[in-house]
């Protein structure tokens, strides 16, 4: 079976006053129905630019090249009106901050009904019914009354539930969740993660989960792609990523988590900061910060993703070193 979403050779470039910025530089990934693919990385690594490219929500200063296929349709180069018909119906997105994504002066019921009636020619009464069921399905108490609430009358967790209800109301086949719990408190985050987990089995959608939090990845994902400076550096099943991480950047991420350390023990730190994408270093983009850097890493061509035992990794290091150091990084969590 062909994957529901398949992205290949995606290049997203922003025109800026200082020159072109290659936010996404040759990303390929795919997600099957009913599966959750996590895209993890730090700010500026291109994870959000990837999701906005898929949704076709980039500003006009951006150009997208490569291929994005949803089912059997190609989204790159698709006319705006066709894309609009897909957005909200076949593919939907949940954003980090529900307050800026909901209209502050319209009742949430009307916003949910609008999401239905844009895509389907149903009577108002039926749309209202669907909106109410939508709110009920995301665990909002007394949904009928809540339809009449304004977003500001709700808590952050409640608003995020409304966003999720809205994204799912037309039963999309692809759901993109961009940092869905980052703005929430930890107890609310647990509620929302539980909800996404329940709904995913129910609606059988393919989920692309964008996050910077490896804890969220471990809780939610089937597969993971680690991004650094616009490229995927490692792609693996969630178990393999945590048990046998292959890329030095992934090791750095895992070993710098404070939760995996005892007090008094020094945290591993990745030196320096991510490179500017205006003028990225040649060769492997992680080379300037890598503890294992070799001469070949600093020269083009950059290491390509190559697959061993189901894990794809873009690194020049030999397999034996990777296995040894990866095991060390993974063991780091033993409390």
């Amino acid at each position: 079976m062909a994957p529901l979403l398949s992205v290949s050779g995606l290049h997203t470039t922003f025109r800026t006053d200082d020159g072109p910025v290659g936010a996404v530089d040759g990303v390929s990934l795919s997600v099957d129905a009913g599966k959750v693919l996590g895209v993890v990385g730090e700010s500026g690594c291109g994870k959000s630019a990837t999701s906005l490219s898929i949704m076709g929500l980039l500003p006009r200063t951006a150009t997208v090249e490569g291929s994005i296929r949803l089912g059997d349709r190609e989204l790159v180069g698709m006319p705006d009106d066709q894309l609009r018909a897909l957005r909200g119906a076949e593919m939907a997105m949940i954003f980090q901050d529900p307050m800026t994504s909901l209209d502050p002066v319209i009742r949430v019921g009307a916003q949910l009904e609008e999401a239905v009636r844009i895509h389907r020619d149903v009577p108002k009464q039926e749309a209202r019914e669907m909106a109410m069921k939508g709110l009920a399905s995301v665990g909002i108490p007394s949904p009928e009354e809540r339809l009449r609430s304004y977003p500001f009358e709700m808590s952050g967790g409640m608003r995020q539930r409304v966003m999720i209800a809205m994204a799912l109301i037309n039963r999309p086949r692809l759901l993109i969740a961009d940092e869905p719990t980052t703005a929430l408190d930890v107890t609310t985050q647990a509620q929302i993660l539980d909800l996404i987990r329940d709904l995913r089995t129910e609606v059988d959608a393919a989920v692309l989960l964008i996050t910077h939090d490896l804890g969220v990845v471990a809780e939610m994902c089937d597969e993971v792609a680690v991004m650094y400076a616009g490229r995927i550096v490692e792609r693996a099943s969630v178990d393999d990523l945590f048990a046998r991480p292959q890329h030095p950047y992934t090791w750095g991420l895992l070993t710098s988590l404070p939760g995996r350390h005892r007090a008094g023990e020094r945290l591993h730190q990745i030196p320096g900061t991510p490179p500017s994408l205006l003028n990225p270093p040649p060769g492997c983009r992680f080379a300037p910060r890598c503890d294992f850097v070799m001469d070949s890493c600093r020269a083009d061509p950059a290491p390509a993703l190559s697959t061993h035992d189901g894990t794809a990794v873009a690194c020049h290091l030999d397999a034996a070193t990777r296995a040894r150091e990866g095991a060390r990084a993974a063991r780091d969590d033993a409390p």
Binding site: S155, G157, M158, V186, T187, T188, Q189, A190, Q191, L193, D194, D213, L214, G215, V216, V217, A218, E219, V238, D239, F242, L254, L257, G259, R260, D333
Partner: peptide
């Protein structure tokens, strides 16, 4: 409620999820 950066433990542990806000 803290997400655990360990998939095996994340699947098996007991979670207390608080209700409401």
């Amino acid at each position: 409620a803290r997400p655990v950066a360990d998939p095996a433990r994340a699947r098996t542990r007991d979670r207390i999820v608080l209700q409401g806000d």
